[in-house]
Design a protein around this nucleic acid. Structure first.
Lengths: 252, 252
DNA sequence: TCAGCCACCTTTGTATGCAATCCTCGCACA
DNA sequence: TGTGCGAGGATTGCATACAAAGGTGGCTGA
């Protein structure tokens, strides 16, 4: 059986990314422990982990509080992902794409072609695209053979809306999202081609540019908070006011 | 007063980076708690933090063990630092260097000029260079205004020998080290110039190339383990054998 | 003499008790 | 009526007890 600590960590992270907490809200141990059905100890461990992941922050007088994110921070994290994935792409291109990796990449491309073959996309198609997109980016990270780079990307991806597929729910909700998804897929194709040809600089540039779609989506979502809230509840953690004082439930 | 947990974390990290533990050695809570004069609880928290930093790893049957590093992993981590610092340099260049930041950078350059003005370098000079080098890289990280980037760099710097000044003790020990340090200083100068001129691509390239000196030093140290051990005791954690089974003290 | 099994012991994971600290609420005084 | 101070309460941080799990060593049998 999984340890209580591991379960508490996963459950807490889930609750946070589902927007269960007010930004700035104090995360007291006892209520959380009761909610998760464990004692304070595993909750404590999980909170410490979440703090290093950047999802919660230490309160000045002990304990933890839900973090508040600014749009700028999210954009910056997406930029960092682009820069790191760019490095991964360059490394793969420079060292040559191993045959098995190339096959996996090309399977992603074919899956994308299949999805975009028809005109209108159904819910299944969006789910399939999301799965394929996750796989593609995981291949990039895992395929570069640089453990420190993979660690850095994974760490960065813990921030809300930084991972590759984090903004896809938004994309599926509006008309232009379809075009952006197709654009992203074509970038995948170019990226694989560049890596296959050993074009390191080109691969890096494409991967870096590739995150712009995510940033566009973020901006789109932030302009329509009421529409976006249902698709991505964690969006409530992102507030334009950068340092507004916490009110409800904050403070020891 | 500082919390027991924070002290335990700092002390444990210190012990690790001083090479107090065999690679692969089991890090049992009770002996560590007695050694640090606290109970198991803060030690536990500290170990969990160190695991996320990548210094220790979870043992299959619970508990933690000292990590073993390969030269390749260290080189890769240094490469990641170069790539991330390159992004920071580019951002600063593109957005324009704020006046205060430029003053701080130029103070570092002047300090370097002062150090290299004489022919032979004394111990004081090496210490001063190290301090200046740390300051320079901290300015780069802090000055870019991208919190996610700063977090990624700081996280990467937790790996042994990844930080900017980690290899300097080696550099000060041999003849060629002097030349390399001078080379690094001249790169600092070029980098500041590029940022001042808004030359983003050039700044990025210089910062990225800048870490090659650290990699040269690492290779130099690994070829002379007996000389390097006294200067950098944590080098014992770096073993060429990538997956050699742990022997003494490992396993529950 | 070697191999396998069993029992003991060490260690981790979890829960909980206890003390210190900080916040909050209420009261008194200006 | 507003402000400041004090008491009470709640919460965190730490230590420790307890149970479960796994490893080690010894013993027994072939």
């Amino acid at each position: 059986m999984e340890s209580h600590q591991a379960r508490a960590l996963v459950q807490l992270r889930d609750l946070i990314l589902k927007g269960s907490f007010e930004p700035g809200e104090r995360l007291a141990e006892i209520p959380l422990a009761e909610r998760l059905g464990v004692s304070r100890t595993p909750v404590r461990l999980a909170l410490a982990t979440l703090e290093r992941e950047g999802l919660v922050e230490q309160s000045v007088s002990g304990g933890y509080a839900m973090r508040r994110f600014t749009p700028r921070e999210i954009q910056d994290a997406i930029d960092v992902r682009g820069h790191l994935e760019g490095m991964a792409a360059r490394l793969i291109a420079e060292r040559g794409v191993p045959e098995a990796l190339l096959r996996d990449f090309e399977a992603c491309i074919r899956e994308g072609e299949r999805i975009f073959a028809r005109d209108a996309l159904g819910l299944d198609d969006y789910a399939a695209y999301t799965e394929m997109n996750n796989r593609f980016h995981a291949l990039l990270v895992g395929g570069c053979g640089n453990a420190a780079l993979a660690r850095a990307i994974e760490m960065n991806n813990r921030l809300p809306f930084a991972p590759a597929s984090a903004m896809l729910p938004m994309q599926s909700s509006h008309e232009e999202g379809h075009r952006w998804m197709l654009f992203a897929h074509l970038q995948h194709r170019s990226l694989v081609e560049a890596m296959k040809n050993g074009e390191g600089a080109r691969a890096q540039a494409i991967a870096q540019e590739h995150v712009q779609v995510a940033k566009l989506n973020l901006a789109y979502a932030l302009e329509r908070p009421e529409d976006a809230a249902s698709l991505m509840p964690a969006l409530r953690l992102v507030s334009r006011a950068p340092q507004r004082k916490a009110k409800a439930g904050a403070g020891r």
